[in-house]
Design a protein around this nucleic acid. Sequence first.
DNA 1: TCAGTGACTGACC
DNA 2: GGGTCAGCCACTG
Length: 110
Amino acid sequence: MKEENRNFFEKVYEVARKIPYGRVTSYGAIAKYLGAARSARMVGWAMNGAGAKEDVPAHRVVNRKGLLTGKHHFDGTNLMQQLLENEGIVVEDNQIVDLEHFFWDPGKEL
DNA sequence: TCAGTGACTGACC
DNA sequence: GGGTCAGCCACTG
């Protein structure tokens, strides 16, 4: 594990922590903000470690379609959806409703 | 060391 | 307009 890689992870966590309450973003948006738009998978992998950090709201990070692809990584099967709904975000069939309304672009609003 | 896999995305057919 | 393919990088066996 190189320090540079850890720095990348740290940046992902930092951006994730800055996601406003009741808002969501996509892996690609974070990756693009970090200058690795084509490495969205790495963001997802970073989130894998973020799940262990309570400070990092990994549930606010979804794929480009607003689909809760990572919900399987949470303790419960619907925990991710529950957390999002708790923040006022409407989730239906593991997908965020009106994603554009809740979407938060780090490169644009940060 | 090599090969397979994954919380994704954009392009192509 | 919807399904398929390839690229991306790090981690595991």
